[in-house]
């Protein structure tokens, strides 16, 4: 299997058959993994996974490789960009599939219901927390992710995640303590 970094992007974007074949061989493992993970919650069949992966490749070469030509090697690695493209393509595929196959009667009522909770929430003033602090608090509390996962995502130390979380909470507590007093 060839490496994605060795792919001649110019040859690929002009439709060189050999380069395309090399690109496909180098990228199927990644696209397969991303598509499978993205579709895992949709409970689709193996054929759907294959079709979703094929959709990713169709998108890449459609309209004279328009999508592929938007890739900029100076900004991100090809594998990361491909993973992002594959995920959004797979989610689109799953949504189209679900829309066309699931009749409304088959969807449980609880899934369609809108929870009517009148909970008044305090508003965080703009600028009180940085975007990173907000993101870390959301990952920690809304999604219950652990510190190591967040550190891996943000490419920072686990200790930095902890200290960012700590500072954010201090700010919030201080602000609302002042407000209440």
């Amino acid at each position: 299997m060839s490496d994605l970094n060795q792919i001649d992007l110019r040859a690929l974007a002009v439709g060189n058959k050999r380069t395309w074949d090399q690109f496909v061989l180098a990228s199927t493992a990644l696209i397969n993994a991303v598509v499978r993970r993205s579709l895992s919650t949709y409970r689709l069949s193996e054929e759907d996974v294959m079709d979703a992966a094929q959709d990713v490749y169709v998108r890449l070469c459609a309209n004279d490789y328009r999508l592929l030509k938007t890739y900029d090697p100076a900004r991100a690695g090809l594998s990361t960009w491909l993973a992002v493209v594959a995920r959004s393509s797979a989610i689109d595929h799953a949504r189209r599939r679900r829309q066309s196959t699931t009749p409304i009667d088959d969807v449980p009522e609880t899934a369609l219901a809108v929870e009517d909770r009148h909970v008044e929430k305090l508003k965080i003033p703009e600028g009180l927390l940085t975007e990173r602090q907000t993101l870390i608090l959301k990952y920690l509390y809304d999604e219950e992710r652990d510190v190591a996962e967040i550190a891996q995502l943000l490419k920072i130390d686990a200790q930095t995640v902890r200290s960012t979380h700590h500072k954010a909470l201090l700010r919030l507590r201080e602000h609302f303590k002042e407000e209440s007093s």
Binding site: A33, R37, S38, T80, V84, R87, Y139, E143
Partner: peptide, 9 residues
């Protein structure tokens, strides 16, 4: 998406 992709990559 960010979490899943970071994990896969």
């Amino acid at each position: 998406a960010a979490m899943e992709l970071a994990d896969i990559l």
